[in-house]
């Protein structure tokens, strides 16, 4: 059985994202968790390149790897600054949680059975001018609502982390 180049790329990105996700969920070291999150977020950008959404991939790298990951590392350094021992993350692995996760997987896979078999692998390229035409055309309400949401989030972050004024 021969594997085509595009399938090889697919499974490489899949392996990277699954590895990153498993590291985030199962590691006990907080810096390794941040590293796994970085691998996962970069692999999501890889998925976007695989689907020919190159602008989205660039935005993912800028916003997530450049923004959110730095924010996570910043929070780790601010909070987990205890002593000599490296901070360990604890988990409570129970059979219930495994059952919930597996049940959701089975449920959604069975629900999407028809959708997946109807896939045609012809990616539509998402060029920046097409994106701007979409964002300022049919998606204008979403675009405006996002602006309001970002302003609200910014104000909330400033209020929450502003410290006590006493």
């Amino acid at each position: 059985m021969s594997i085509s180049m595009i399938e090889l790329v697919f499974w490489m990105i899949a392996a990277a994202s699954l590895l990153g996700a498993l590291t985030v969920v199962f590691t006990r070291d907080v810096t390794r968790m941040a590293l796994g999150l970085g691998v996962f977020l970069l692999s999501v950008a890889g998925w976007f390149v695989y689907f020919s959404q190159t602008f989205l991939a660039a935005a993912q790298v800028f916003v997530y790897v450049g923004g959110v990951l730095v924010l996570v590392l910043f929070a780790i350094m601010l909070v987990h600054r205890s002593g000599a021992g490296r901070p360990a993350l604890e988990s409570r692995h129970t059979i219930d949680s495994i059952m919930v996760a597996v049940a959701v997987f089975v449920l959604v896979v069975s629900a999407l059975q028809d959708v997946g078999s109807a896939l045609t692998v012809t990616p539509l390229p998402g060029s920046p001018d097409a994106i701007s035409a979409a964002l300022l055309g049919p998606m204008l309400p979403h675009f405006e609502a996002l602006g309001v949401l970002l302003l609200a989030a910014l104000a909330a972050v400033i209020v929450i982390s502003g410290g006590e004024r006493s």
Binding site: F48, Q53, L56, A59, Q60, I131, S132, L135, L146, L149
Partner: peptide
């Protein structure tokens, strides 16, 4: 065309 990335950008933000 463009709406795929548009939806992706909305989720990203």
């Amino acid at each position: 065309p463009g709406e795929t990335s548009g939806v992706g950008l909305v989720i990203l933000v």
